[in-house]
Amino acid sequence: TTVHLNGVTYTFPNPEEARKFVEKLAKTLNLKVEVHNGTYHIE
């Protein structure tokens, strides 16, 4: 599972880890999250 954040790409072997990371980040920084083909894009 891949996460794109400010031009940096993070790869998680575990989709659940990626989801938790994204949710925590989005909540902390009040960001918008979009998912395209299983890839998270955070703005």
Rank of each mutant, 00 (worst) to 15 (best):
G38R: 01
R19E: 06
N14Q: 05
T1H: 07
R19P: 00
E43L: 14
V33G: 01
T28Q: 12
F12L: 03
G38C: 14
E23V: 08
N37S: 03
L5I: 10
A26T: 09
H36L: 12
A18F: 05
G7V: 03
A26Q: 11
F12K: 00
K24D: 12
G38Q: 02
E16D: 12
A18S: 02
G38D: 05
G7H: 11
K32D: 03
P13T: 09
H4V: 14
L29W: 03
K32S: 06
K24S: 08
E16S: 08
E34I: 14
E16L: 08
T28K: 13
R19T: 06
R19C: 14
L31D: 02
V8D: 08
G7K: 09
V35G: 01
F21T: 01
A18N: 00
T11Q: 11
L25Y: 03
F21S: 00
H4E: 06
Y40S: 04
K32C: 15
L25K: 01
G38W: 02
N37Y: 03
L5M: 12
E23T: 06
N30Q: 10
V33C: 14
V33S: 01
K20V: 08
V22M: 03
K24F: 14
V8T: 09
N30W: 04
N30K: 07
N14K: 05
T2P: 07
I42M: 06
T28R: 14
T1C: 15
N37R: 02
A18Q: 01
G38H: 05
N37W: 03
H36R: 14
A26R: 07
R19D: 05
V22G: 01
L5C: 14
V33P: 01
K20D: 08
H41G: 01
L5R: 02
A26I: 11
N14Y: 06
E43H: 12
N14E: 06
P13M: 10
L31V: 14
V35A: 02
A18H: 01
P13N: 09
V8L: 10
E16C: 15
K27G: 08
G38L: 02
R19A: 07
G38E: 03
T2A: 12
Y40C: 14
V3F: 03
Y10E: 02
G38I: 02
Y10L: 14
T11G: 06
K24L: 12
A26V: 11
T1K: 10
V33R: 00
A18K: 01
F12S: 00
G38F: 02
K27P: 04
L29G: 12
Y10F: 13
N6D: 09
H36T: 05
I42V: 13
F12W: 03
V8I: 11
Y10W: 11
N6Y: 12
R19S: 06
V3C: 13
T2C: 15
V3E: 00
Y40F: 09
L31H: 04
P13W: 10
E43V: 15
E23N: 05
L31E: 02
Y40G: 03
L5Q: 01
T2V: 12
F21M: 03
R19M: 10
